[in-house]
Design a protein around this nucleic acid. Structure first.
Length: 315
RNA sequence: CGCGGGGUAGAGCAGUCCGGAAGCUCGUUGGGCUCAUAACCCAAAGGUCGCGUGGUUCAAAUCCCGCCCCCGCAA
């Protein structure tokens, strides 16, 4: 089929790549405009654009697709369109263009975790299973009828980045299979159970501030769900910001210290062990402003953190 | 020209303001103690102090000039 692909970040690249290696023809790629990013506010192209350019595909960027892109898509005249974390709403006018409609690759088991951050949210909520859904793109937010679902377990110490990569691979494969079924076997989509739907919002800086009153396991899930972006953090009482990349559950008994305190481990091993609302969590990879990521022992060795020191825990 | 921090031994840091013998906590190697150890004791190796083979000086990690690299915030 002649396909127009719409996507923006790395997740989309994986899906686009799979389509490119398939029997289908990618007649156009639509992505969001370059945005100023990083130090110095340089314009950076979205990953999908970078990849598509390398592959010599036709790339179109629209500030607002529904407003500016209708004519372009009409001219391309695709059989099918595919979205994978595109990040923009698609108007009815565009939805009606391709005869096979628009398929969306969503990284959750719909109707659970609709919205912007299904992968991160699944980890933060301590889910043990997640998956990918191939569904019809509609006017609503991830409300379209479902064609197919594939599930996968979430590993205990899996980061959102790792999970995202796995789900992208799974999603890409499932998408191709689903297109085949639709085209050759006339697969029909099934409506979602809207009453059971849950929505995930964009993860904010405030969401990933560690609240030490929570349990060690909840905090661990927050840390892994926020990795590699935006990264969970805490701060010392003098206002030093510390990013936490990785942590380990310890099984150490609770101490008498208030939550957020760096406590002594049972062994003489060095490390950053923090008393949580319930349980003691070991911070194994952290980063201070201006520095690179380091392990817990290094933070202690360099006197960056000391035994008995407290992280701010009340907000 | 968005704001800011940093580059000193394998790791994390101090020393830089007020130039004058390269240090700290670990790690590594060897030895000792021990039933044993990631614990403890003793010893050793390991650094052109980011680069210029730049400038000032009797003397530069430290002051001045230029360049490279890393990172936090904000977006």
């Amino acid at each position: 089929m002649r396909i127009v692909f719409l996507g923006t970040p790395e997740f989309g690249v994986t899906v686009l790549k799979a389509l490119l290696e398939s029997r289908h023809e990618i007649i156009g790629v639509i992505t969001r405009p370059d945005a100023p990013s990083g130090r110095g506010k340089q314009l950076v192209a979205p990953p999908v654009k970078q990849f598509a350019k390398e592959q010599k595909l036709k790339v179109f960027q629209f500030e607002k697709l529904s407003r500016d892109g209708v004519e372009t898509i009409q001219k391309l005249n695709p059989d099918l369109m595919v979205t994978a974390s595109f990040g923009q709403i698609i108007s009815k006018e565009i939805l009606d263009i391709p005869p096979y409609g628009i398929l969306n690759v969503h990284a959750s088991i719909l109707p659970k975790f609709r919205g912007a951050s299904p992968i991160q949210t699944a980890i933060m909520k301590g889910e043990t299973v997640t998956g990918v859904t191939i569904m019809k793109t509609e006017l609503g937010l991830d409300t379209g009828d479902i064609y197919s679902i594939k599930t996968t377990p979430i590993n205990p110490y899996e980061t959102a980045g790792e999970l995202s990569k796995r789900l992208a691979d799974i999603g890409a494969k499932l998408l191709l299979e689903t297109i085949d079924e639709i085209e050759y076997k006339g697969l029909q989509p099934q409506p979602q159970s809207h009453v059971q739907a849950t929505i995930t919002k964009k993860i904010t800086k405030e969401d990933v501030r560690i609240r030490w009153v929570k349990s060690d396991n909840e905090i661990k899930n927050l840390i892994y769900g926020a990795n590699p972006s935006p990264i969970a953090y805490t701060e010392t009482e003098d206002g030093t910001l510390i990013k936490i990349y990785e942590a380990k559950l310890t099984n150490l008994p609770n101490t008498q210290e208030p939550e957020g305190t760096i406590v002594a481990p049972t062994s003489n091993k060095k490390g950053v062990f923090v008393q949580c609302g319930q349980g003691v969590l070991q911070l194994t990879k952290l980063q201070f402003a201006g520095g690179k990521e380091m392990d817990g022992a290094s933070a202690i060795n360099g006197n960056k953190l000391k035994l008995g020191q407290k992280f701010v825990s009340a907000y």
